[in-house]
Design a protein around this nucleic acid. Structure first.
Length: 273
DNA sequence: AGGTCTGTTACTGA
DNA sequence: ATCAGTAACAGACC
């Protein structure tokens, strides 16, 4: 589930690490979606964490030496920060970083679809997983006109387009349904059939829903928690996700499968034609 | 026991 | 080249 709001909540929780220095790194499980580079163990003691950046669903810790550590949370990845004295290693704690301020940063990921990467900043920015990213969903440069131009020729359905990180980055399966409900656009509409006004509405809804979700600390399904262990709240504000059979003003919410993923929507409110 | 799940990539065949 | 469908990754949950 970690989509943009959960990743952004995580980043905000990591702020106390800024200007801390790394004193120890421990890899417990090298084999995640990609292997954790062994070179990460060569980080010199007292290298500083300079700043923390989000790109779509990626988290980048910039270090003082032109290197950086990248995290992707996949489906079940979580980053937690503990004080030394409060920390005991748990199941699926794959990567642990300790600082000179008695902080412990822990990457836990039961399904191991996430990853930890490390390298020179310039090399990381040239990696495919970064260069392929479309404009960040919360970037001011994401406009209705951008979306319109990007999808003008495609017959892919809009739900799938929103999940395509190459078009825009940050939206995942849950928020895609919520966004399209908010925009009153059917998930089945094809990209090339959407006009500029509809694209503008969709972009408006993307920003509105994602910002609202960030304010709620993201959504907690199963066991997502933020860096300090607090739960997200936005799942209580879902209008359609996981609401199959519910009614909104008498209109039924249904579940369909698109591209192998579930989509929830209200056909009465989100008309196809 | 079997189906489902929040992300992403790679492969197939049309 | 583009698109839809499927499988893969690995574990938890129902």
């Amino acid at each position: 589930m970690p989509e943009l709001p959960e990743v952004e909540t995580t980043i905000r929780g990591l702020r106390p690490l800024i200007s801390s220095s790394i004193v120890k790194i421990k890899i417990h499980t090298p084999k995640l979606r990609i292997f954790i580079p062994k070179s990460i163990l060569s980080i010199k003691e007292l290298t500083k964490i300079r700043k923390i950046e989000r790109r779509g669903k990626f988290i980048i810790l910039h270090l003082s030496n032109e290197y950086c550590i990248v995290f992707h949370l996949g489906m079940s990845g979580r980053l937690r920060v503990f004080f030394n004295s409060n920390f005991t290693k748990k199941k699926h704690d794959h990567f642990i970083l300790s600082t000179n301020k008695e902080q412990v940063l822990v990457f836990n990921d039961s399904r191991r679809f996430g990853f930890v990467d490390f390298g020179k900043i310039s090399n990381i920015y040239n990696k495919k997983y970064i260069t392929n990213l479309g404009i960040d969903a919360l970037d001011k440069k994401l406009t209705g006109n951008y979306l319109f131009k990007k999808i003008i020729k495609t017959s892919v359905q809009i739900k799938q387009i929103l999940l395509d990180q190459r078009v825009l980055s940050g939206v995942g399966n849950i928020y895609a349904s919520e966004i399209l409900f908010n925009a009153k656009i059917s998930p089945l509409r094809k990209g090339k059939d959407l006009n500029i006004e509809e694209c503008t509405q969709i972009v408006f809804s993307i920003k509105k829903i994602l910002k609202k979700a960030i304010k709620s600390g993201g959504s907690t399904l199963r066991d997502y928690v933020s860096v300090d262990g607090t739960l997200g709240n936005f799942q209580n504000k879902f209008k359609v996700y996981n609401k199959e059979g519910d009614k909104i003003l008498g209109n039924l919410i249904i579940k369909i499968v698109q591209y192998g993923r579930s989509t929830y929507y209200c056909p009465k409110i989100q008309k196809k034609f």
